[in-house]
Amino acid sequence: MTNLLFALSVAAIAAAGLWLALRRDLVDIVIGLALVGTAANLFLFGAGRVVEARPPLLAAGETAFAHAVANPLPQALVLTAIVIGFALTCFAVALALRLAGGREVDGDALSAAEPPPARDGEPGGLP
């Protein structure tokens, strides 16, 4: 049940994230990508297997783990990925807000860097 539930939640988060990212609102896109990142982190965490286990902490006085503990490596990797993802998400929010600049901006109509073709079908001129 654990495995199924876990996989289901990864799938749901990923699908919802991409669904949002495929909307045309810039902030929705960023939120969606953040969710997709969360799903990836969850998957990475799952790579260490989601079994019931104690945290990989040695209590004071212990010198070795006597009981089953969670796999510490994916945790460390996920921690790294979370922080990187957070930095990128912050950047993305700032970029989306700057791009929108308080206006309604359609993510499918960003044409300053990619001008649409000219009337005769030839490529449009870049600034």
């Binding site: 990864v10 990923a14 799903a39 998957f43």
Partner: peptide, 30 residues
């Protein structure tokens, strides 16, 4: 931020891709 109005709809293809993406990730997880 001013969201798009009317709210954009996600087309069938895009929705299907999102679902397929989630399904793939979920399948991999399992």
């Amino acid at each position: 931020h001013r969201p798009l109005s009317p709210p954009p709809r996600v087309g069938a293809l895009r929705a299907a891709v999102a679902v397929a993406f989630g399904a793939l990730l979920g399948g991999l997880t399992l």
